[in-house]
Design a protein around this nucleic acid. Structure first.
Lengths: 126, 126
DNA sequence: ATTTGACTTAGAGTGCGCTCCAACACCGAG
DNA sequence: CTCGGTGTTGGAGCGCACTCTAAGTCAAAT
């Protein structure tokens, strides 16, 4: 039962479109592109799916395509690059954390503004 | 001493570029554009600065230019639009909050990956 | 008097990340 | 045997948010 998924299936499971999956592959984001079935269709394994899920999270947290390509290239070179990959993820992790902090901050300003509107509406019973 | 700021000063204080400030103005993001000095230069008041700061926070939290324009248009129509503006901010606030949640979530997956690398490096003393 | 530098404009250009198109291949159902 | 559905490709196109260019104005400094 493990004879691979179609691109549509991977799209469904990751929330990316089939277009985007092909684009990612062309962009060098898959260290080992999925093998092809008889008719030339991509045949994704669980490992591919897992990788794409990771990519989608990296993307969702603001990593650029170039950043993901760098990560993919390292991953393609196996064990010896573990440290570099770890380093890359740590740097990214830090960026995401500080981005979250920034968002929190921005949110408080927005909340202040919201309070001001609430009071203004109340006072003027608009 | 309150005779207004130059565009460079506002750029410095907001972190936006002068180019971007002009772009925002052209895009209709300033309900009342800054008046011009004798030589046609923009002369921002504190109110303008405050507004631009708010814009930059809305932007930083992912509001689109179109969204900010809508907000600016409402603000330009004064008190009667208070409710609508409040509504707009509340919707945006909710989006930002859920985005932060999503980022947290994504971060845990990245953290897992980081742990895996740490262990792999340790075990294989790479 | 000239040069420097900060500003003005309309409009063109850029970079990113998709997103779609046209033309084609193949499979299974009716 | 045709049709619909799903896939393939290279390359074009798009939307967004800037970002910059060119040509000009003006004030202060040298």
């Amino acid at each position: 039962m493990d004879e691979g998924m179609t691109i549509a299936e991977v799209a469904r499971r990751t929330g990316l479109t089939a277009h985007t999956l092909r684009y990612y592959e062309r962009a060098g984001l898959l260290p080992s592109p999925p093998p092809r079935g008889v008719n030339g269709h991509r045949c994704y394994t669980q490992r591919h799916l897992d990788w794409v899920v990771l990519l989608s999270r990296l993307r969702a947290t603001g990593m650029s395509i170039a950043g993901m390509r760098r990560y993919a290239e390292l991953a393609g070179n196996g064990l010896p690059t573990s440290r570099e990959r770890l380093e890359l993820l740590l740097v990214h992790r830090a960026q995401v954390a500080s981005r979250i902090e920034q968002l929190r901050d921005d949110l408080t300003l927005i909340d202040n503004k919201i309070d001001i509107y609430r009071k203004s509406i109340e006072e003027n019973h608009v």
